[in-house]
């Protein structure tokens, strides 16, 4: 296991796109924290109870919900890394040199796992910083309130990266895979749900679940006093996410296993 991860890191760390993407991701997070002041001002303009969006504990609802979208950057990175193996044909050489197809898939799953853990940790740390900056007064225990939402964030990250992995494995070329991925994230998922199923399967579609359910859009609940604030990810949503993680990795594994390289 460690050997496979080690090989993946040897391929990845000197890769320039990796450094750039990581930089963009971190800048996006920092930017969100810095412009957080503006978010507070927006909430001031809406009539009703005043809400401190980036103070404890609301920071987890607002900040994590915003960061979900930055994971698309990491997903693009995964698409590049996986499709590179096909365009450079290095997947062939890796197997010729003695890796099994299972090793190939396991290596990428481990890498995606590592990226998800790192993303969650970074978001946690920057979230705590944001909370400290924007809470007028806070105690140590406040940091840990609504932390189960972070678990939801971790699962969402894993799920979207697994989806990117599957798309890259299917299409093999980073350009086509990226376009297909973006199309699926924005219109296709919604279209399938709305046009075919009349919105009935909203909770069960991968993208809808990832971006709306596991961490709910916080604006309505927090800005209008009549709705309940989400304090933890729903069980159904967790199950759906785990199902899709397994499905995306499983399908990617099956394709890699069956394909002539």
């Amino acid at each position: 296991m460690m050997k496979l991860l080690n090989i993946e890191l040897k391929k990845l760390l000197p890769y320039r796109a990796f450094k750039i993407m990581l930089l963009i991701f971190v800048i996006s997070l920092a930017g969100t924290v810095i412009v957080g002041k503006q978010l507070n001002k927006v909430s001031d303009m809406i009539p009703g109870e005043q809400v401190n969006t980036l103070g404890f504990p609301n920071v987890w609802n607002f900040y994590l919900y915003t960061c979900l979208f930055f994971n698309i950057i990491l997903a693009l990175l995964v698409i590049f890394v996986v499709s590179n193996e096909y365009t450079y044909r290095t997947i062939r050489q890796n197997i010729i040199d003695g890796m099994t197809r299972n090793d190939i898939v396991t290596g990428k799953i481990l890498l995606i796992f590592l990226l998800s853990v790192l993303s969650t940790l970074t978001v946690y740390i920057t979230g705590i910083i944001a909370g400290m900056m924007y809470s007028s007064s806070w105690e140590f225990a406040d940091i840990f309130e609504r932390n189960s939402l972070l678990f939801g964030y971790f699962l969402q990250t894993l799920c979207i990266l697994a989806m990117a992995y599957l798309f890259a494995t299917i299409f093999k070329r980073s350009g086509i895979a990226t376009i297909a991925f973006i199309l699926f994230i924005f219109p296709i998922d919604v279209l399938i749900n709305q046009a075919i199923f009349k919105g009935d399967i909203n909770d069960y579609m991968p993208v809808s679940n990832m971006f709306r359910k596991i961490i709910e859009a916080p604006y309505n609940a927090l800005l209008r006093s009549d709705a309940a604030v989400q304090t933890e990810p729903g069980i159904l949503s967790i199950c759906v996410t785990v199902f899709y993680i397994l499905f995306f990795f499983g399908a990617g594994w099956y394709i890699t296993k069956k394909r002539d390289l």
């Binding site: 050997k3 080690n6 090989i7 040897k10 391929k11 000197p14 890769y15 320039r16 590179n84 450079y88 044909r89 290095t90 062939r92 050489q93 890796n94 010729i96 040199d97 003695g98 890796m99």
Partner: peptide, 25 residues
């Protein structure tokens, strides 16, 4: 083995490429 064209990670140095091959083998 060498199969058809030489296959490498183009952005890695020759030495880094061999390190990956060595690790796999």
């Amino acid at each position: 083995s060498i199969l058809e064209h030489p296959i490498f990670y183009p952005y890695l140095s020759g030495e880094q490429n061999l390190k990956i091959a060595a690790k796999i083998k």
